[in-house]
Amino acid sequence: MQSATISRSTRASRIAAGLAVILVVALAAAPWWTSSANLRLFTEFMIYLALASSWNLLAGYAGLISVGQHAYVGFGGYLMFSCVLFLGLNPLYAIPIAGVLGGLIAIPVAFFVFRLKGPYFAIGTWVVAEVFRLSAAQMSSVGGGSGLSIPVSAMRALGSKSEREILIYLTAFALCIGAVVVIYLVLRSRIGLALTAIRDNEIASLSLGVPIGRIKLAVYVVAAAGTAMIGALIFITKLRISPDAAFSVNDWTVFVIFIVVIGGIGTMEGPIIGTLLYFVLRESLADLGAFYLMILGALAIVIMLATPNGLWGLVVKRFDFSLFPVGYRVRGLTPKSD
């Protein structure tokens, strides 16, 4: 008779969780120990990590390979501009509004794009983003194709330069940690179990009674709401919006896919590793101009060929280790020796 225990975490993951909490606390206190240049960099890091995490939830777990998430980044950005220009709102208050409306608009969008499967879904989401871009270009009240700038007075109202930076950093921090925590909790819930099943085999999970349609819709709406909130924040830091900048497929979708794919799709840790790597590459190579983009592309190809599960997949394969344990493991079983 053997006794087996089932647990989510391992000793390693508990230690890692402890260190992660320390890191998060340190990052929350970043405004008090780092320069404003680094604060900007951290803000951008948080923004990309949040974007990557929500795309990972969509593509890695729900199997919704969307290449049109820039639709929601741009939507959030334009909504923030509208709130500031027409309602005179504090730009930061526009972020939750962008989240709610981004989630709402995702429902009718889902109605259309969910009729498409696989590659058609991917193209469909891109088309939706293009429709968003062209619509924004037609609205002359928000600058049309020319774009417009946020009034300097609206930004100055947020406080002095350092107050503004701290406020924006903490917002980015809250959005990013919020996104990671929400996704972690979702994945540990019943929905997470269903998502893991969908990720591994959609037809098999359907035959076991997983309500695929409803779960996918929920994930799509949550990802859209998160992306729209991040979009609003992005354009608070950019100060200027134009349809090409807001709905830039390169900036808000291609780089995000790159991050998730090289980090490890379908894992919580992948986007973190990917974002770290992306920023290291960008900070060291961006001055090379076109070569920088070629290096990024070559690297993505090499990693996809060498380790299809990304860099984190390499770690998992060798050490069976997880920073964010979302599955279960059985301990204590040993093979019978007779």
Partner: peptide
Amino acid sequence: IYKDTQSNSNRAAEVAVELIER
């Protein structure tokens, strides 16, 4: 100190901030 925008207005804003802050 030279910064390329890659003809992208998002990147132009980013590099301007880099020049100012870093």
